[in-house]
């Protein structure tokens, strides 16, 4: 569990705070979506939470350990997947993971096994002896996930992790995030792909200009906001309309299907169609996006 209280960061004196008195909890077995416009302070907040930058004020507690005063114990309990992973230029994937594992006191043989398993799970097994700096952006992101998972922490912070990952990678990351949740991990998922957060998160925290402006569960969000799900079905037929009627208003234009309603989940619709043999190519949900944009516009 991560407990954030009054967290502020001012990089230079005289500048406005990058984050300003942030309060936030990320509970075990919970995925918290962290959304905001560019420059809103998402990354600063995450970096302060994991101890990469020292906060100007406030505190961060990870599983009860303060990230500043009890840095070592706190860091044992958290994994960070940065937006832009950077590693030592000469480091090779497997040896770098083992090196990271050493900081947590994991014996070399166990570290090797765990690193190998993780690289396999993240489809990087064929690259385990290659230099990480030569990886593609997507591969680096997947490697970053492995690096964050090497010590099996109880808390994870994903910072724009899905950026630059191909569809297959997105699916893989999505599966891992859900598996982590099932394992009881606390997860903060920062992304500007709101659709992704909408499908995965239990709760959404919205940050704007360094301040938390709202924290709302997805259940409440769906109840109070209209969801617009847009999907493409390549083998569409007359039955689709009938299948989807229960979700809300249906609008079909060639292969494109638009469903508008309350408390509907794009993932459920997708599963429903796939089970009945339809090919769903693209899916886009706009509940959170609508809600978020309205919220931000109101503040302006």
């Amino acid at each position: 569990m991560i407990h954030v209280q009054g967290l502020s960061k001012i990089y230079n004196k005289g500048d406005p705070p990058a984050i300003d008195s942030i309060d936030m909890d990320i509970n075990d077995s919970e995925i918290v979506g962290f959304v905001g416009l560019n420059g809103a302070g998402k990354t600063t907040a995450i970096r302060a939470i994991i101890g990469a930058v020292l906060p100007t004020a406030g505190s961060v507690s990870i599983d009860g350990h303060d990230i500043v005063r009890e840095k070592r114990l706190a860091s044992m309990g958290v994994g960070w997947i940065p937006e832009t992973p950077v590693y030592n230029a000469d480091a090779k994937a497997l040896s770098l993971l083992k090196y990271f594992a050493g900081f947590f006191g994991i014996p070399r043989d166990k570290a090797e096994k765990r690193a190998t398993d993780l690289l396999e799970r993240l489809s990087l097994k064929d690259h385990m002896n290659k230099k990480v700096m030569n990886f593609s952006q997507g591969m680096k992101k997947r490697f970053a996930i492995a690096a964050a998972m090497i010590h099996d922490p109880g808390n994870y912070l994903f910072d724009e992790t899905l950026n630059g990952i191909d569809a297959e990678g997105v699916e893989l990351v999505r599966t891992i995030i859900h598996d982590l949740k099932k394992d009881g991990k606390a997860i903060l998922l920062s992304s500007h792909i709101l659709n992704e957060i909408e499908d995965s998160a239990d709760r959404v925290v919205i940050i704007d200009r360094g301040k938390i402006i709202d924290s709302i569960s997805m259940e409440n969000l769906r109840n109070m906001a209209t969801t617009r799900v847009e999907l493409t079905v390549t083998n569409i037929d007359g039955n689709v309309s009938e299948i989807l009627q229960k979700y809300g208003n249906i609008e079909i234009n060639n292969s494109r299907v638009i469903i508008t309603g309350r408390d509907i989940k794009a993932s459920e619709i997708n599963n429903d169609l796939v089970k009945k043999g339809y090919n769903v190519n693209g899916i886009r949900s706009e509940t959170l996006e609508n809600y978020f944009l309205n919220l931000v516009r109101d503040r302006k």
């Binding site: 101890g51 840095k71 044992m76 958290v78 940065p82 992973p85 950077v86 900081f103 947590f104 690096a147």
Partner: peptide
């Protein structure tokens, strides 16, 4: 490491 950014990956480990 500080300039390249690799430092961040170390400081998030149990390092001070």
């Amino acid at each position: 490491d500080r300039i390249s950014g690799a430092y961040q990956e170390l400081i998030v480990r149990p390092n001070t």
